[in-house]
């Protein structure tokens, strides 16, 4: 029998951090709010600004569910502090489109059934938008590799790939002429829009 003490590494008296004001442009709207420095951008979006489309899957940069775009570049919003992004221009899934007015990627994700539970989906779509903005992926293999920062536990990867390839194809961004459908053969089904 032995004694184990669960305690913090430091032994400083507990204290609270000061708060400060932060200004963010989110989905083209300016937003001022006050937070302590320990608030991540992800928690600021979800808990302070009620923008819950951005998801928390791991809170450690290990899953990509929290992906948002800052100045058009994709990042993990769980690993940056809101105060560090003071003045930044942020796009979240809510800014890419609405259920009534979907972006091409959002529509392609529906048409290709590129999700099941939907929890990784906003991060996948923001990541895919970042991928399109970067313009580095030109082939199926490159899209797979450059979409590997977004886990999908439902395993919708083949459909995520084909959704993105379709959007890239329409935009003339694909280098290889190989049949791009991820399912070995393109599924023989046309979408029925509901």
């Amino acid at each position: 029998m032995s004694t184990v003490i669960q305690k913090p590494l430091d032994h400083q008296p507990p204290s609270l951090p000061p708060t400060q004001s932060v200004r963010l442009t989110i989905n083209s709207q300016e937003s001022h709010f006050t937070v302590a420095p320990w608030t991540t951008l992800l928690d600021a979006l979800r808990e302070h600004l009620d923008l819950t489309g951005t998801k928390k899957g791991c809170d450690h940069g290990q899953c990509g569910a929290c992906t948002v775009l800052i100045d058009g570049k994709r990042i993990n919003s769980c690993l940056t502090l809101a105060v560090m992004r003071d003045g930044a221009d942020i796009t979240t899934i809510e800014g890419l489109g609405t259920p009534e007015n979907l972006s091409p990627l959002q529509q392609a994700f529906i048409d290709h059934d590129a999700f099941q539970c939907g929890y990784c989906t906003p991060g996948q779509i923001c990541s895919a938008q970042g991928l399109l903005n970067e313009g580095k992926a030109k082939t199926e293999a490159e899209v797979r590799e450059l979409m590997s920062g977004n886990l999908c536990r439902c395993g919708a990867y083949p459909n995520i790939l084909s959704a993105i390839m379709e959007v890239m194809d329409k935009d003339g961004l694909i280098m290889d002429t190989k049949e791009w459908s991820a399912g070995g053969a393109k599924p023989e089904m046309d979408p029925i829009n509901s």
Partner: peptide, 9 residues
Amino acid sequence: GASPQLRNM
């Protein structure tokens, strides 16, 4: 290394 998102940060 890492992922595109992490490499951007």
